[in-house]
């Protein structure tokens, strides 16, 4: 349950799982300077848009705002990621998926860094991500993650199926840490609401 320190962990994982791949690939880059080993950051962002969230597979880690930043440090790609919830059990899985996708694309030297601050909020979910959530049947977070939203009354959540605003909350917590359970009073469909945090 409890992991090694965040700072050292990602390095350790990268070394264990891919030291062979990395040596081979970085040798090649060093000798021939083949382009594609160090693609433009824009291309890498596009690549990561294909990495799906394990629990809500219609949205990518980019849509959710889990990937904070990409930067090249010489031949090493530094990926800053942020957990959604402190205890989200998918965090390590997501980090692994990101690393694998980057290795598969030929980027040999990848370092993942966890960045807690500023804390992730649902405001980080992109517009595209919100639209994908809705199309999948999960109501996207309503409004902004202010203290008022968190402490105040229930937001008006529209049904992702029929669009009705006549909905009621069944449970403040749902199938994953990030969701609450709602029901539409118009079409009677139950649905997940990606809660605002």
């Amino acid at each position: 349950m409890i992991r090694e320190s965040d700072n050292s962990r990602s390095d350790a994982v990268a070394f264990e799982t891919s030291s062979v791949d990395r040596l081979i690939a970085s040798d090649r880059a060093g000798r021939s300077g083949v382009s594609g080993i160090r693609p433009a950051l824009e291309e890498i962002w596009q690549l990561l848009e294909e990495v799906a969230d394990p629990e809500v597979p219609v949205v990518s880690v980019v849509d959710l705002g889990i990937v904070r930043d990409l930067a090249w440090a010489d031949e090493q790609l530094v990926v800053k990621v942020t957990p959604t919830y402190s205890g989200c059990p998918a965090t390590e899985f997501i980090e692994q998926a990101i690393e694998e996708a980057l290795h598969a694309a030929g980027i040999a030297d990848v370092r993942l860094e966890q960045q807690l601050f500023p804390a992730w909020t649902t405001d980080w979910i992109t517009d595209a991500g919100r639209e994908k959530l809705r199309a999948f049947g999960i109501a996207p977070p309503v409004g902004s993650a202010s203290k008022r939203t968190l402490l105040g009354e229930e937001p008006e959540v529209a049904c992702p199926q029929c669009g009705s605003h006549d909905t009621s909350r069944v449970s403040e917590f749902g199938s994953t840490a990030c969701k609450a359970l709602y029901r539409c009073n118009s079409c009677l469909e139950p649905f997940d609401y990606f809660k605002c945090i």
Binding site: M1, I2, R3, E4, S5, D6, N7, P83, Y85, S86, G87, C88, P89, L116, V170, S171, E172, F173, G174, S175, A177, L181
Partner: peptide, 26 residues
């Protein structure tokens, strides 16, 4: 519903405990 809520709250707390204890260990 209560079971999910209680489990989710516990999960958040475990995550936070991990962050504090990692810092303590370092």
């Amino acid at each position: 519903e209560e079971e999910m809520a209680i489990g989710n709250v516990a999960l958040d707390l475990i995550g936070q405990a991990r962050s504090w204890l990692e810092y303590a260990a370092e």
